[in-house]
Amino acid sequence: MASADKNGKWSLDGKPIKIDKWDTAALKNALDDSAKNVLIKNHGYVEHHGLMDGRLLICTIAVAFAMFALVWDYFKPFPESRPILILCVTSYFVLMGILTVYTTYKERGIFLVALEKDRAGMDPDNIWTLSSSLRKYDDIYHICLTFTDGKTKEERKTEISKSVASFFDENGVLCTDLYEPEIEKMRESLTTDKKGK
């Protein structure tokens, strides 16, 4: 463990994040989580779960409809349960449609909404959002950081696109010492803009 720490590799339980480097989803998750940590852990911004909760709610209702249909059909076998089944099946597929629309147009790859509390507690919070995308057979990871000023509602944006190979070593261990400074740089570029004005 000590050697890992020396390399600056980090994870929740002090263990470096090691993933299967051929697994696109795992790559993206590791990078997303690590970027999230820069803002939440290192800067103490407060995570806002609204977006995720919306998705969880849609999924929960959809699964509830399916389970209800299952139970109802068990107690009132088929021809009798038909009207309820029609209701549940249509609701389920409508909800799946809503979920698709929600993830493509509302979430748009956003995996973190963080609030930066105003120190004096007077102004509204500044909002930071992180979104990312990584195509299945592509090595270029796009990450985008957006800053919305609480007071002026002004929005600023910065993004980088880099090969995932620049953040992972050959064994699939995330090199936080290479990755986190990138995120930090993005964050600073947005804050210094503010001061420049």
Binding site: C59, A62, V63, F65, A66, M67, A69, L70, D73, L85, C88, V89, Y92, F93, M96
Partner: peptide, 11 residues
């Protein structure tokens, strides 16, 4: 949802 989708297609 994976289970539900299969179930709902069947129903």
């Amino acid at each position: 949802m994976i289970v539900s989708s299969a179930l709902m297609i069947w129903k």
